[in-house]
């Protein structure tokens, strides 16, 4: 009986854990199936080339939707550039405490056209997010020569279009 219970506990612990390359951890959604990640810097330098394609990105989780866990920001620690992984509310829920963990995520790369109101709202949010040193040093997020992505803001705003990954799954390092 004890053996059976023990085996069951081990099985439950193993289910939901997986590895994506060197990232081992908990699976969210459909997990990760693409073996090679696309560098985030490559995605954001020529976003038009990747729109509509299913890609995988690897990086560090630098932001998570605080209340619903419906998105997370995966940032390349080398370049500081990040991409938001947006998932359907409730279908996948990224835990808030996963910030700082490494993650692999995949989904369809999308361009989202913003309304003028959304552009203004995002610029304001980005400005607030970059409060602290960047703001103190007179380096607001939305200045023309430095796109938000470079100023460390969470949402890369390029004109009135943002790029995100419509996430289907992820592996987050435990």
């Amino acid at each position: 009986m004890r053996r059976t219970v023990g085996a069951l506990v081990v099985m439950i612990a193993v289910v939901g854990l997986a590895s994506a390359g060197d990232i081992q951890g908990t699976i969210y959604g459909a997990g990760v199936t693409i073996s090679e990640p696309t560098p985030i810097a490559t995605l954001l330098s020529k976003p038009g080339d990747f729109v509509g394609q299913k890609v995988r990105v690897d990086g560090v989780i630098t932001g998570v939707c605080e209340k619903r866990g419906c998105w997370m920001q995966v940032t390349d620690p080398e370049s500081g550039q990040g991409v938001r992984i947006k998932v359907e509310d409730g279908v996948i829920v990224f835990p808030y405490e996963s910030m700082g963990h490494r993650a692999a995520a995949e989904g369809t790369f999308e361009a989202v056209k913003l309304t003028p109101e959304q552009v203004a709202a995002r610029a304001e949010a980005a400005k607030q997010a970059a409060a602290g040193a960047a703001a103190a040093a007179g380096e607001p997020c939305d200045k023309a020569e430095a796109p938000a992505a470079k100023a460390g803001c969470d949402a890369p705003v390029q004109n009135d279009t943002i790029y995100l990954l419509r996430g289907t799954g992820a592996v987050i390092q435990s």
Binding site: V60, P77, A130, G132, A133, A136, A137, K150, A151, G152
Partner: peptide, 26 residues
């Protein structure tokens, strides 16, 4: 847990249930 240079003027340090967003160089 990890340290990320989000931008030339911003550093993020991730600890257990604690995140430090550091404005540089101030």
């Amino acid at each position: 847990r990890s340290v990320v240079r989000m931008a030339p003027l911003q550093l993020k340090v991730f600890l257990d249930n604690r995140n430090l967003t550091v404005g540089l160089p101030v």
